[in-house]
Structure formats: structure tokens, C-alpha cells
Design a protein around this nucleic acid. Structure first.
Lengths: 226, 226, 226, 226
DNA sequence: TATGAATGAGAGTTCATTCAT
DNA sequence: GATGAATGAACTCTCATTCAT
């Protein structure tokens, strides 16, 4: 077997394990996930899982990075048709809270809550969390800067603080959604999140037919808000 | 031993165990907490822990409720000197994000992140989480209603949505603080949280000497923002 | 159950586990001994073994100490009829190399070789080994001093060096016996060990009927040398 | 590639693996040595190690034989300047207990203790041990015969028994040295071993300047006894 | 109430060995 | 010869939970 094939094969295994891990951790949580379960579902031995990921924490870190990379990669595509800053923000928040058309964009919030929970006590995991957070804030910053340049947005504070506040609000909504708090479904969360974003960014937003039409780019109508 | 003494003794044990559990779960997380560790620190046998709390989940539920009750109880006292709705809100947010003068008010955020993480997959825990959330939103609602009545606040949406949005933002900030994201310390979080609350509630707030003076009701000066 | 009964029960378990461990480690060696095997043979769960001996090394240390204590305790009894220093030495060497009438005195040399092997790299085990060695040399010293006082023995060097040399020779013979080197059986080793001891201690010793008669105190005739 | 080159290459690999195995087994013991560690340090794959040595026991056997052959080969050279039987014996004991100028002559006692320990339960290893022992005794026999012929030595028993006794004593001292018993350093062991050898062989030996000078053939002065 | 010995079903991890390439 | 992915059986150790006392 040629060297390049080896590398491909190796990468394939790595990805296969990460995908499976991602699935199972999302389903039942990190601490309820067994290496043996991942191996079984992937159709390999548990020894092989350890061969690629020496410890269980490595697996969590790998799975989170994998999810993150996949999410951002596919987010670009999903937002391809959004042109104004408002539409971009709307799309980002919609996909963040409700999900997108691909499995990767159907963000597994339970994975994130696990990550936060582990991050408070494990520095390696905390570092991964910070990485993610920074990436998300940078993305938001870019969109807001575009909106300011295009005179769509007007800020009431510094851009840094605005981003921090909005990101915090979005995370908080994600907790509501992940914990399935009855009255705050993903769609309700999206709606409120956009209204308060518009307040902070000085633009007008209301959930009308135009919004509904636009959102069909990201998910099926039935997932939409009333 | 008289019946009443039995009950007292029983309640004492219950509380003693809960306090210890709270301590240890906060320190190292729910899944890293061993029944045996709680028993050892409480100076009792692990069998006795199981006698009062038949399963480990019961212990988590109990500890969270205990923390919650303690927190609200002491919050009242802490806010005794705050009279206007603005001051009340300020105090609530300060204590929520930074902490208060008593151990109970030094909210162990890591406990809450654990709770969220477990809540996504365990209905009993999810119920406790919802209880907490409802209580917190009711508290916020009361204060906002008072502010509206006193013409301190003006809303840009329904009161329900405003409360949901603010509560989400506060939770998101709590994640930042708990995961020790470098640039968002508890004090920074408080500051930004108040600025954006003022935007949503139509009041003016800026972090000046008067605020600093007021905050000294809740914690020592050195914990204050610049 | 009364406290004293608890302690008795606890000691019983401890001893039961140590005895079983001793047996199995002797049979197949420390690194081939499984906690589960000990548990199974003792008729208990492996968790209980770990309850009494938190690590496998603790079990080895415990087993060695137990064997050692048992050996010395029973050595006293076995030597009760030996009066002269020569007879005492003879008895000690005979039991050391060939064994005695009780299981404890049928020294499991393989256990000792394991101990030496582990001692080169594990300080805890090395300490136990040193303990044993010191005890054995003290025993030899006492007997030799008695022999000198009784004018049975005459030394050609210091008593310290004599003891070190003799102890080394006995250990070396033990290796021969444990590794079942064909021509050096336990009996042959005993015979040569005594002849060279007599050289170092200036007494006359030859393996005659009187010796054979005396040795019957320690083991059955068939175990005796031709 | 020509057949002879293949064989050379093959021998090279074999030796390379044995040297590395010897190193690592000496450092951390047989049962703590991993095939993968040997492969890594040798810069090859673990599959290749198994290609040359089908089982781990083969590797131990090979390593011991390799060490043994190296030791005897270099012993000859080291003793080249020793002419009398006394000097030869002195040199052999010195190198046996203290070591020589080459790595091979710095006998790794821990390897030998491992060998003994395994030999009690593994017949293949026991056979290797016997081989070694026989070789060592033959060497001692030759020297003693030379000493008798040259009237340097006078025996108090048969030559066979004398060799067995001395070999046992040397092994026993090796245990002391390997287990780093504080008061019996390699140098002390050598000194006592020689004094008691002289007793058994009827020659005069005392550790004076002449001895010290002679020993400088084998190792550096600082390693010498006072 | 209270103890703590006892359980037992794993858990993650290890590692000699195999084998397709 | 040489690789290193892959296996899988086993190991020590963990820990919530049970239960006789």
C-alpha cells in the first residue's frame, strides 16, 4: 500500500471514530459514553479507538473540534445566499438555535453543555471551549462590522461589548433549547433573540413573511415559527 | 428520644449531607463526586448517605434545591437596602454574576453547568432546572413590573419576552464566568449585562461612583470593577 | 454486632486474603497473579480484595510480611529442642533450605525471588526486603554469639562480615533450590552450606547419623539426604 | 541484494533488537518492558521485533544469552593481565560484583534477578539459567584447578562442593548489591567475598595497596574500596 | 439510625500478537 | 524484510448500591 493510501486510510479511521463519538456523546452525554459503545457502533475494536485517541478526553476534544470545524465549514455554504448583514445575522442565529439542512448544522446542544461543564475543571477542554468562543465572536464581529459599514446597524456601545452581550444571550437561549424548557422552543428563542439583537444593533426586525421565506433556505417550513 | 428530636436529628443529617454534597459537587463536578467522599467529609458512613438519598441523582437534586433555596433566601436580605427597581435589578445581577457576602450567595456556577448538562438527558433533573428558571424569571418579572409602575423602565416588547431575553443573557454571561474566559471576568460581565439591560428596559445606567458605592453592600471593594 | 466482633471479622478477612494471595503468588508468581484469582479462590468478590488492599503492591507487601512473620514465629517452636549453637544453626539452615513441618515453614522460595526482582525497582518492596534481611541476619548473629560464648565457634573475621557472608551463601543456595538446578537439591545445598559454615565458624560438622536423627525434628525422613 | 548481505542485515537487526531489549529490561524489568518500547527505542516497528523474536519470552532468552556471551567474551580480555589463580579469581569476583570497563561488564543484576524469578516457573528460562550457571561454575572450576596445580590453593572439601558454595555466596552478594542494601555495597561485598573465598581455598588475601593497584585494571579508582 | 463490609458489573486502558500490504 | 493498523482478551481498579448487624 502506498504511503498516501496509508494516510488516507488513517484519516478515514480518525474521522469515522470522531463521527461515531460525536453521535454517541450527543445522544447520551460524555460521561455516559463508553469507549466500547463507540467501537461497537463503528464496527471496530475498542483497542483501535485507543490507538487513535489515547484517552477518553482526547476523544471529547477531537469530537468537539470536528463538530466545530464541520459547523463553520457548512455555515459558509448555508449563508451563501444571504447578502445584507441583517440577513447574515438572521441566518447565523437561526442555524445556531434551530439548525440547518445538514446533520452537522443540527447543532447538538447537549454536546456543548457537556463541554462547558467539563471546561470548568479541565484546562484542556477549557482551551477548546475558548477556541470555539473566539471563533464565534469573530464571526459575529465581522458581520456587525459589515452592517455598520453598510449603515444597516448602529451601535449603542463598543462593538466588543455588543458582541459579548449578544453571544451571551445566544448561549443562554441555547441552554433553554437544550434543556427543553417548554415555553422557549428553538423557534421562540430565535424570534426573541432577533428582536433583542435588533434593539442592540439599531435595526428594524420583525418576524413576517419575508423572514419566513428567507428562513426556508436553512430548514423546512414545518420547523418555522408561527 | 422524643419524636420531635428524631425529626430534628433527621433534618440535621439531611442538611449536613446536602451541604457537604454541595461543597464537593461544586469543587469537582457531579460525575467526579463519590458518595464515599461526601460521607468521609461529613464524617459519616456512605451507607447513611444512601439512607437519606437513595440514589446519587437524588443527592444532586437535593443539593441543587438546597443551594437554590439558600440563594433566594439570602438574596432577600442582601437586597434589603435596595429600593428602586434599578437598584434591585443591579443587585440581583451583581450577586448572580459576582456573588454576595455569604457562601450561599457565592453561586457555584460549575454546579449549574453540571445541572444543565445532566438536564438534557434526565427528566428529573430537567424538572429541577425548570423550577429554578421559573423562579428566577418570576423574580425578574416582579422587579421589572415594579420598574414600569415607577416609570423607571420602558419596554420595547412584551414583559415576558424581555425577561426571557435578559435571563438568557445573564445565563450566557454565567457560562463565560464559569469557564473563566480571560477577557470576560465576573466584573466585566456584570458591567456589560447592566448596560444592555438598560437598553432593553429604557433606563440610563453607567458604571460610576454611585454604582460602586451601592455595590459595596454586596461584596468587598476589591471585587469591584474599575 | 459488637465492635470487637467486627474487628475480629475484619482481621479474619485480612488474613484469609493474605493466605490466599501467598498461596497463589507462590504458585505462579506475582506478575502472573490476578486479583480476580485470589478473590475466586477465597470465595469473595475482587472488590473486597481491593477494599482491604488498595493496590496490588499492597497485597504483595502484605503477603510477604505475613509469610515472614509466620515463618519466624514457627521457627521458634521448631527449634525448641535445639540447645547448642551448632544445633540451632543446623536447624535454621535446614528449615531455611529444606522446610519445616508446617506449611509456613515450607518456605516458598519463588515468592522471595519475586520479591528480590521487584525490589530492584520498587522502593516500598525494597524496604520490605531489607526488613526481612535484617531480621535474618540478627537471628544468625544471635546464634553465632551464643556459639562463641559457648566456645563452640571461633571466628576468622568480624562477626558482622561472617554473618553477611553466610547469609549471602544461604541466599545463593536458595536460588539454586528455587530454580531447581538438578544437581543442587535442597538436601545437597543444606549439606554443603553446613560444611562451609563450619569452616567459617571453626567447628566440626559432618553429615552423620546424629545429624540425620536431629533433622527428623524438622521434616520427615524421606526428605533427608542420603 | 546478495544472500550474504541479507544474512548480515538479518544479524544486524537481531543484535540491534537484543541490545535494545537488554537495555530496557535492565532498566525497568522484564514484566515492565513493552515490545513497543523496544521497537521505539530501536527505531523500528513492533511488528519487526516480533518477526525476529516470535514471543516475548524469546526476547528475554535472547537478551540473557546475548548479555551472557558478551560478558564472558569481554571477561577474557579484561583478565588478560591476571596471571596467578588468585589474581584471576580476584578479577572475576571484582567484575562479577562491581563491574568492568565496558557496558557489557557492568552486569545488570536486575536482569539476573528477573531471570531467576521467571525461571522458577518457566522451563525454557530455567534452562537458560542453568546454562549460565554451569558456565560460571566451569570458569570457577578451571581457575581453582589452576590454583591447586600451582599450589596457591588448598581445598577443604571436593572441588565440586567448593565451587558450588563459592558460586552461591557470590550470587547471594549479588542480591545484596542489586537490592541496594545500604551496608552491603558492591565494594563491601567484593571485600567480604574475597576474604571468605580465601578461607575456603586456603590462601591469604587482604585488601591492601597491591589489590587496589590490580583492581585498577578493571574499573576506575573512585569505584574502589577504602 | 448508623455502620462498613460486601458486591458485581463494568470502566478505561494495556499490550502481545496477528496480518494485509 | 518491514510496517503499523487492528485485534481482543485481560487487567487493575472504581463505585453506586445493598444489607446484616
Amino acid at each position: 500500500m502506498a504511503r498516501s493510501e496509508n494516510i488516507e486510510q488513517s484519516d478515514f479511521r480518525r474521522q469515522q471514530i470522531l463521527m461515531t463519538a460525536l453521535e454517541i456523546i450527543s445522544e447520551r452525554g460524555y460521561s455516559e459514553t463508553r469507549i466500547a459503545d463507540i467501537a461497537k457502533r463503528a464496527g471496530i475494536s475498542s483497542g483501535l479507538v485507543m490507538y487513535y485517541f489515547p484517552t477518553k478526553v482526547d476523544l471529547l476534544v477531537g469530537a468537539v473540534r470536528y463538530a466545530e470545524d464541520g459547523w463553520y465549514g457548512e455555515l459558509e455554504d448555508a449563508l451563501a445566499d444571504a447578502t445584507t448583514a441583517t440577513e447574515l445575522l438572521e441566518g447565523m442565529v437561526a442555524i445556531f438555535l434551530i439548525g440547518g439542512r445538514t446533520p452537522m448544522l443540527q447543532m447538538q446542544w447537549s454536546l456543548w453543555l457537556d463541554l462547558w461543564s467539563q471546561a470548568t475543571r479541565n484546562e484542556t477542554i477549557a482551551a477548546v471551549h475558548r477556541e470555539n468562543d473566539t471563533r464565534w465572536r469573530e464571526k459575529l464581529t465581522t458581520v456587525i462590522e459589515q452592517g455598520i459599514a453598510a449603515k444597516e446597524f448602529v451601535l449603542f456601545g463598543t462593538i466588543e461589548n455588543t458582541v459579548i452581550a449578544l453571544a451571551a444571550m445566544f448561549d443562554g437561549f441555547a441552554v433553554n433549547v437544550a434543556c427543553k424548557e417548554g415555553n422557549v422552543t428553538a423557534e421562540v428563542a430565535f424570534n426573541i433573540a432577533m428582536r433583542f439583537s435588533s434593539l442592540s444593533l439599531g435595526f428594524v426586525w420583525q418576524n413576517d413573511d419575508a423572514v419566513a421565506t428567507r428562513l426556508q433556505r436553512y430548514f423546512e417550513p414545518e420547523a418555522l415559527l408561527a
